Amino acid sequence: MATAGSTAAAIRLDGRVVEISKPDKALFPSGVTKLDLARHYERVAEVMLPHVTERPLNLQRFPDGVSNGGIFQRQKPDYFPDWIDSAQTPKQGGDPVTHVVAADAATLVYLANQAAVTLHAWTSRRDRLDRPDRLIVDLDPSGGSAEDVRQAALAFGAILRDELELPPFALATGSRGYHVVVPLQRRHDHDEVRAFARDLGRLAVARDPERLTLEQRKAKRGGRILVDVQRNAYAHTAVAPYSVRALPAATVATPLRWEELDDPATRPDRWSIRSLPARLARGGDPWASIDDDAHALGAARRALDALLRDAGLDAAA
């Protein structure tokens, strides 16, 4: 339940009252306000929390709105209340970083009041930071069309499902691309997962060099879709499911049913704060049982090595 006024609002949930300062302040050119952002995170908490709870978060904050530059924040500020959960993560050559952990809906709403528009989550959980439970291939178009990147996602899904016997899940990132995600049993470290993802990318690029590239430098991509596997490295993050993107229309990173990629009307930025509630009311969270499909990579690693050899490529280059 929320009450609003010209200078303040309060959202009551989880036995707490979260104050929303300047609730009518427009954070997006489309007119979406800070209170709208807070209400979004209140609405999606039930489906979002299973995907972020126990994961260290990085916050992308826009105190002056998404058109005016933002702050990418890893460290939990000292002024955050004690009830905001946190996790310490070791940092090579420096002090540990204390990240926010979203343990409840009230935390998501509190972060919205801090103009934390987008939440980025680790691929591992705080009890075993060195063992990721997500493999992510980020398909980032340098140019081209939404159709090209949709077809690329379908191609990755076919390799994973039909040739490696791994279950693919798709996320419309709310921006220009898709994430193809595999839930993992926590048996492999980040280096093993990233090496697997990179070799998967190398195989896909070898099969479709006109559409795909592993070239990080945009000037050298030639308009091709970047197959980005760096999100699988230790301490790297990916946009959290149901997170709002810092784009004019307040689009939302939206989990898909895999078959939705067969529909040409599906686009990475199809859903926004305003349209997502109707989608959730119709079908709920397509990723609700994602962890039930968690796999180890042993058999898939051997199958991928064989496919690389057949393509004239060496494994784990």
Rank of each mutant, 00 (worst) to 15 (best):
residue 213 T to G: 05
residue 163 E to R: 15
residue 48 M to W: 09
residue 68 N to P: 05
residue 303 A to T: 05
residue 275 S to K: 03
residue 191 D to Y: 07
residue 57 L to N: 01
residue 96 P to W: 03
residue 291 D to G: 05
residue 278 A to T: 03
residue 7 T to M: 04
residue 258 W to M: 02
residue 208 D to Y: 06
residue 265 A to I: 06
residue 84 I to Q: 01
residue 244 V to Q: 04
residue 81 P to T: 02
residue 137 V to P: 02
residue 23 P to E: 11
residue 65 G to Q: 06
residue 126 R to H: 10
residue 155 A to R: 11
residue 45 A to T: 09
residue 204 A to W: 00
residue 139 L to C: 00
residue 59 L to Q: 14
residue 151 Q to H: 13
residue 214 L to F: 01
residue 219 A to H: 08
residue 183 P to G: 04
residue 146 A to V: 08
residue 138 D to R: 07
residue 173 T to G: 02
residue 207 R to S: 11
residue 307 L to R: 15
residue 305 D to L: 00
residue 312 G to N: 05
residue 140 D to A: 06
residue 193 V to Q: 12
residue 283 G to N: 06
residue 221 R to I: 01
residue 35 L to K: 03
residue 292 D to Q: 15
residue 22 K to M: 06
residue 310 D to P: 03
residue 279 R to K: 14
residue 159 I to Y: 09
residue 133 D to Q: 07
residue 267 R to P: 07
residue 198 R to H: 14
residue 116 A to C: 14
residue 212 L to C: 06
residue 209 P to S: 00
residue 77 P to K: 00
residue 297 L to V: 03
residue 77 P to N: 00
residue 203 L to R: 02
residue 161 R to L: 04
residue 29 P to C: 12
residue 79 Y to Q: 06
residue 217 R to Q: 15
residue 275 S to C: 08
residue 181 V to K: 13
residue 294 A to Y: 08
residue 191 D to Q: 14
residue 208 D to E: 09
residue 120 H to S: 10
residue 44 V to Y: 05
residue 279 R to E: 11
residue 122 W to K: 05
residue 103 A to Q: 07
residue 266 T to V: 11
residue 131 R to A: 09
residue 246 A to P: 02
residue 291 D to Q: 15
residue 108 L to M: 08
residue 102 A to S: 13
residue 217 R to H: 09
residue 244 V to N: 03
residue 221 R to L: 08
residue 10 A to F: 14
residue 237 T to N: 02
residue 66 V to M: 01
residue 294 A to K: 12
residue 1 M to D: 01
residue 131 R to F: 02
residue 94 G to L: 13
residue 265 A to Q: 14
residue 116 A to N: 12
residue 212 L to A: 01
residue 190 H to A: 00
residue 85 D to L: 11
residue 139 L to S: 03
residue 64 D to E: 12
residue 198 R to Y: 10
residue 277 P to H: 12
residue 69 G to T: 07
residue 116 A to T: 13
residue 115 A to V: 07
residue 145 S to N: 00
residue 302 R to L: 10
residue 101 V to Y: 06
residue 140 D to W: 01
residue 186 R to I: 08
residue 4 A to F: 06
residue 76 K to Y: 04
residue 8 A to E: 11
residue 24 D to K: 11
residue 295 H to T: 09
residue 75 Q to V: 13
residue 227 V to N: 08
residue 54 E to T: 04
residue 49 L to D: 06
residue 134 R to I: 06
residue 24 D to Y: 12
residue 228 D to T: 10
residue 180 V to Y: 08
residue 116 A to E: 04
residue 47 V to W: 15
residue 132 P to E: 05
residue 60 Q to Y: 13
residue 144 G to T: 04
residue 293 D to C: 09
residue 132 P to A: 02
residue 248 P to S: 11
residue 295 H to K: 14
residue 272 S to K: 09
residue 278 A to P: 03
residue 11 I to R: 12
residue 316 A to N: 04
residue 201 G to Q: 02
residue 112 A to M: 06
residue 220 K to S: 07
residue 57 L to H: 04
residue 119 L to V: 10
residue 81 P to W: 01
residue 249 A to S: 11
residue 87 A to W: 08
residue 85 D to T: 13
residue 183 P to Y: 05
residue 304 L to N: 02
residue 27 L to F: 09
residue 252 V to D: 03
residue 175 S to T: 12
residue 128 R to G: 00
residue 162 D to H: 10
residue 301 R to V: 05
residue 275 S to A: 03
residue 179 H to P: 04
residue 160 L to R: 11
residue 130 D to Y: 02
residue 272 S to H: 09
residue 94 G to W: 07
residue 261 L to V: 14
